[in-house]
């Protein structure tokens, strides 16, 4: 039994440090973020030299793959917000769109002919990238915590 779990139980019993309302509201918002029918893209190791590894140093790089698609996701801090960019390989073709999803907002972009995308002014925190490519099901990355 860990100390942390005992302390957690005692705090619950004492009624100290209750969960803030905003945290509960965010949990409710999370429940609306399921993308029915989507294919979850698992993380795969990034290639050496493909980017710095921590947002503390300015940028952070992730790579995901599923259903024959590879999605890269790169974050860059810009005045307290994030610039999110990346590449879909192979390019998903006409009619596809990229959706940057956060618990509080979603932004969509049409990928370039080469499969690139970029979105600015994304708040720091949890985010996921979805590649919509009708009529095939969307491919969506695991949620990533993007913060320094």
């Amino acid at each position: 039994m860990s100390d942390e779990l005992l302390v957690a139980a005692m705090r619950i019993a004492a009624g100290v440090d209750p969960v803030p309302a905003a945290v509960s509201a965010d949990a409710c918002a999370a429940l609306g973020l399921q993308l029915p029918g989507s294919i979850l893209a698992a993380p795969v190791p990034a290639e050496p030299g493909s980017g710095t590894r921590s947002l503390l140093s300015g940028t952070e790089f992730h790579r995901f793959a599923a259903d024959g698609l590879t999605l890269t996701v790169e974050f860059e801090l810009d005045a307290g917000l994030l610039r999110v960019s990346g590449q879909v390989t192979p390019p998903p073709g006409p009619g596809a769109w990229i959706e940057i999803r956060t618990p509080h907002l979603g932004k969509t972009r049409a990928p370039s002919d080469a499969g690139g995308y970029a979105v600015t002014s994304i708040p720091i925190g949890w985010l996921s990238v979805a590649c919509h490519r009708p009529p095939d099901p969307p491919v969506v990355t695991r949620w990533i915590l993007a913060r320094p």
Partner: peptide
């Protein structure tokens, strides 16, 4: 951490 757990549950 809490929000991450809910998001992991969704996925």
């Amino acid at each position: 951490a809490v929000q991450g757990a809910w998001l992991r549950m969704i996925e």
